[in-house]
Simulated scan of single mutants.
Amino acid sequence: MTLVDAEPGDRVLLLSWQHLDVETPYRADGPIFVNESAKETGVWRNEVPEQQRGRLLSVRAYDAGGWMRDAEVVEGVELAPLVDRYFSEAAVDFLHVHNARRGCYACRIDRA
């Protein structure tokens, strides 16, 4: 399974997704686009999906309690080094990636 952009003519669903269900002020939901023909979610280990490498991304680092510890806007080709930097901090438990321009939620990154 790969994370891919919709092609012209594809039907997509614009949905609200609760991507951070925590009891902190950072609790959040936001827009996601899902291709109507999608059958499953993608899982990648130790790699950045090609589709994310060409985007401007907003990356947010959270601790286990859902408190934001850091955040950065980077080009997708710079995502892997940023992930390494954030996870070098013991307090960072997971990351959320959003498309910076439109704000749509893209994915969650967990420690391997």
Rank of each mutant, 00 (worst) to 15 (best):
M1W: 00
M1H: 09
T2I: 07
V4T: 15
D5T: 11
D5E: 13
D5P: 00
D5C: 04
A6L: 04
E7T: 07
E7K: 15
P8W: 00
P8R: 11
G9P: 03
G9F: 04
D10W: 07
D10A: 11
D10M: 07
R11V: 15
R11F: 07
R11W: 14
R11A: 03
V12G: 02
V12H: 08
V12F: 04
L14P: 00
L14W: 07
L15A: 10
Q18L: 06
H19D: 08
H19Q: 11
H19E: 04
L20F: 08
D21P: 06
D21T: 04
D21K: 15
E23M: 12
E23Q: 10
E23P: 07
T24N: 03
T24Y: 03
T24M: 00
P25E: 06
R27N: 05
A28C: 01
A28I: 00
D29C: 11
D29Q: 15
G30P: 03
P31F: 00
P31V: 01
I32F: 05
F33N: 01
V34A: 11
E36F: 15
E36N: 06
S37L: 07
E40C: 13
E40K: 07
G42D: 05
G42K: 06
G42A: 15
W44F: 15
R45D: 13
R45A: 14
N46G: 14
N46P: 00
N46W: 07
E47N: 14
V48R: 03
V48S: 02
V48E: 06
V48N: 08
V48H: 01
P49Q: 12
E50V: 11
E50Q: 08
E50I: 14
E50L: 14
Q51L: 10
R53Y: 04
R53W: 03
G54V: 13
G54S: 09
R55M: 15
R55I: 02
L56H: 11
L56W: 10
L56F: 02
L57N: 06
V59C: 06
A61V: 04
Y62W: 08
Y62H: 11
D63G: 07
G65S: 13
G66R: 12
G66Q: 09
M68W: 02
M68E: 15
M68H: 00
R69A: 10
D70R: 13
E72Y: 04
E72D: 13
V74S: 03
V74K: 05
E75P: 01
G76H: 05
G76R: 04
G76M: 12
E78T: 00
L79V: 10
L79A: 12
A80I: 05
A80Y: 03
P81V: 14
P81D: 09
L82N: 00
V83K: 08
D84P: 06
R85S: 13
F87W: 06
F87V: 12
F87N: 07
F87M: 01
S88Y: 01
S88F: 03
S88G: 08
A90H: 05
A90C: 01
A91K: 09
A91L: 02
V92P: 02
D93A: 14
D93F: 13
F94A: 08
L95M: 04
H96F: 02
V97M: 05
H98L: 07
H98M: 02
A100C: 10
R101A: 08
R101T: 13
R102Y: 12
G103N: 06
Y105R: 06
A106T: 02
C107R: 01
C107T: 12
R108P: 01
D110T: 10
D110F: 02
R111A: 11
R111E: 10
R111T: 02
A112G: 13
A112E: 10
A112W: 09
